[in-house]
């Protein structure tokens, strides 16, 4: 079966700083992969390479078996990959509604915008209350909700989520994960980057552990706990 997303021996740099040293990664259609590792291990860079935000300096990226290396970001998006970057990835000068409209209109077409907005506000009622507020004036957590609402409603073919739970109250994190569960069962593949492994491992089938920009281990999510703990201790002991 052709993988939905495949990274083969990917190297990547930020200026003089190399972040990835030959990473291999596969996400099968409808699959769910948790990307684990300490800060600076290259998790975010993998997520960025998988949407063209950072170009691989060597190696290949393929979507549905089609070579996508060095294609611009919008081509990845059009191929059905939605990415919720870490942090407050929103348009701060737009209203809440404009933020969502931009995404929905481009992915789903004009007709579906209204319907999708309602879905988003159902998912995060707080956003509904503030639909015409400027996004930059929302609280940190609300901004985070907004950037998640963008991608959760889309039901893309692959959803890449970077540090979902960052800055969210535990109760909201629970809600987000149950939504992820739901869109997973409707066929969306997931690539989850998380510091807080417990949730992610529960949701995913497979796990990939990155260390210093290389894949240190990969296997089923259920085995990941022991392995990761052992390794984190090792690296913490350094």
């Amino acid at each position: 079966m052709t993988a939905l997303l495949e990274l083969r021996d990917v190297w990547a740099e930020y200026g003089p700083f190399r972040a990835l040293f030959g990473v291999d990664l596969k996400v099968p259609p409808g699959g769910a992969v948790a990307l684990l590792g300490a800060n600076g291990a290259g998790k975010t860079t993998v997520a960025r390479v998988a949407t063209g935000l950072v170009q691989a300096s060597a190696g290949d990226v393929a979507v549905d078996g089609i070579e996508m290396t060095n294609r611009p970001t919008y081509a990845y998006a059009r191929a059905g990959i939605a990415h919720a970057p870490e942090g407050r990835s929103i348009f701060a000068s737009f209203t809440v509604e404009e933020n969502l409209t931009l995404t929905f209109r481009s992915f789903l077409g004009r007709q579906k915008v209204g319907e999708s907005l309602e879905q988003a506000f159902e998912l995060f009622p707080r956003l509904g209350e503030r639909r015409s507020q400027t996004a930059g004036t929302l609280s940190g957590g609300e901004q985070r909700m907004l950037s998640l609402a963008r991608v959760l409603v889309l039901q893309p073919r692959l959803l890449i989520a970077d540090e979902l739970s960052l800055g969210l109250a535990p109760i909201v994190v629970d809600e987000v994960y149950s939504t992820l569960e739901a869109i997973r069962s409707s066929g969306t593949a997931l690539l989850i980057v998380e510091q807080h492994m417990a949730h992610a491992l529960e949701l995913c089938d497979d796990a990939v552990l990155l260390e210093h920009g290389k894949v240190a281990w990969q296997g089923s999510a259920s085995d990941a706990g022991d392995v990761v703990t052992g390794r984190l201790f090792e690296s913490a002991g350094d």
């Binding site: 949407t51 063209g52 935000l53 611009p72 970001t73 919008y74 998006a77 059009r78 939605a82 990415h83 970057p85 990835s89 929103i90 348009f91 701060a92 000068s93 737009f94 931009l102 995404t103 481009s106 992915f107």
Partner: peptide, 17 residues
């Protein structure tokens, strides 16, 4: 307006910035 604020975010939405 989106491109002015963040070309990359715009591209993530499938728009050629």
């Amino acid at each position: 307006r989106a491109v002015v604020e963040s070309p990359r975010m715009t591209e993530l939405n499938g728009i050629a910035a």
